[in-house]
Write a protein that binds this DNA or RNA. Structure first.
Lengths: 228, 228
DNA sequence: TAGCCTGAAACTGTATCCAATTTACGGAGC
DNA sequence: GCTCCGTAAATTGGATACAGTTTCAGGCTA
């Protein structure tokens, strides 16, 4: 049953490779919320034993992406609309703060790196790995703030929200406005205009959050209709 | 070699119990920064096998309390002064935000619960578990904000800083001012005075951060003198 | 002394076994 | 027919033994 899944080799432990692979599958929806992670099935599918797999699961559990219950197993976490709202609140607080600190400190090289990520997203269309490129752009913008601890934390926050965002992003045709916001943020950063830059970011996060909530509400509406 | 360490039984997995126990030891300094976690030694000392121990280590690694390197093992993390500063920056942003949202929403019962935690800290002196009581007080104050996701995140942030705070807290005789700040925060919360309450919190975090930095700088000075 | 070699220690991962618990299934009783 | 209950299969949680790698210290040699 070995499917020879591409566990990138190198100087990383098997546990870490499995963690990365499972995280990827969760974020791109291959492992949808509520999916049960059967240890033996997954282990044989990945071609590994249960031990490193279980360690990977514990890691993802600490990140909030999966939830385990004693003797019942592990499922891909589901977030309530409330929890998603909480996540966007955290993003709003931390990201506006980091961006504000980053703009005055950013060198042209820093901003060039961020721009390259926008270009890559535009060029490739970025349908498959939008979430990854999106986060890397934001990260590049905030990096000059110097607060790497906050960036590490925010990556996890992004990941937890990204699954849901990705699901409705392309349905809503929001990619264009996302990219447009990114261009604007970068432009104001180049002008070292903190106030306008942060303002764009604030509206950016608010809009993504709003669209997501609306999308979730609409999805919650449908099943009810089916019943009625 | 079984030492029958008090792993509280109940409906929690061994992995979880070990995680809690190791976290406790790290936070109270029993496992100092840089300490190597030898799997077999620790396992036999705790009276468990390596499997749940390794899972616990992965969990703590995700929390940032320990750091693993392939084939070299796991050590209790060391934080640079810069990283500690980053942590306090995050606290400042998130806690002032949560407190601001919590004050108008707090019921008298909420605040009574917070006050009980102050009392407990005062009564017991709280030398052994100051970090725990301290966080639980802050958590109780922010809980009415409703943002449980942020509280979960902040717990980890607190933990990562708490080790260092605890080390110098009693040397500096800072417990009194800590408690005094807590009383003031609670009092303003009871008055529903958002502005003054948040202001006390802001100064509170800033002072703890400043004292800690000074303490670390002083500690860094000593070894140099020893050499000279 | 510098550099290399070697062996013990430790980590990483596999395989296997057993215990505890959940869950599904099927029959007894109403 | 429906509910309840007991049993067996499936699954997770945990222990143990073992093999392969890597690190690292200490000794040997040039």
């Amino acid at each position: 049953m070995k499917k020879d899944v591409p566990l990138k080799p190198g100087r990383t432990s098997l546990t870490e490779q499995i963690t990365t692979e499972l995280r990827r599958r969760i974020l791109n929806g291959q492992l949808a919320e509520g999916t049960m992670l059967r240890q033996e099935r997954l282990a044989s599918e990945l071609g590994v034993s249960r031990i490193p797999l279980r360690e990977a699961i514990r890691h993802l559990e600490a990140e909030g992406l999966v939830t385990s219950e004693l003797h019942k197993g592990t499922v891909v976490s589901s977030l309530s609309p409330r929890e998603l709202e909480d996540l966007f609140g955290i993003r709003m607080q931390l990201e506006t703060w980091l961006f504000e600190a980053a703009i005055p400190r950013a060198t042209d090289a820093d901003l060039d790196r961020a721009e390259a990520l926008i270009d890559e997203a535009s060029r490739t269309g970025a349908v498959d790995n939008w979430g990854d490129l999106n986060w890397r752009f934001h990260e590049a913008l905030y990096l000059p703030s110097g607060n790497r601890v906050a960036l590490k934390l925010l990556r996890s926050v992004h990941d937890n929200a990204a699954r849901y965002v990705n699901l409705q992003l392309f349905v809503m045709r929001d990619v264009e406005s996302e990219l447009s916001d990114h261009h604007a943020m970068l432009a104001y950063a180049r002008l070292r205009d903190v106030e306008r830059g942060v303002d764009v970011l604030r509206r950016h996060i608010a809009r993504v959050s709003r669209n997501l909530s609306a999308s979730l509400a609409a999805a919650a509406e449908k099943p009810l209709k089916d019943i009625a």
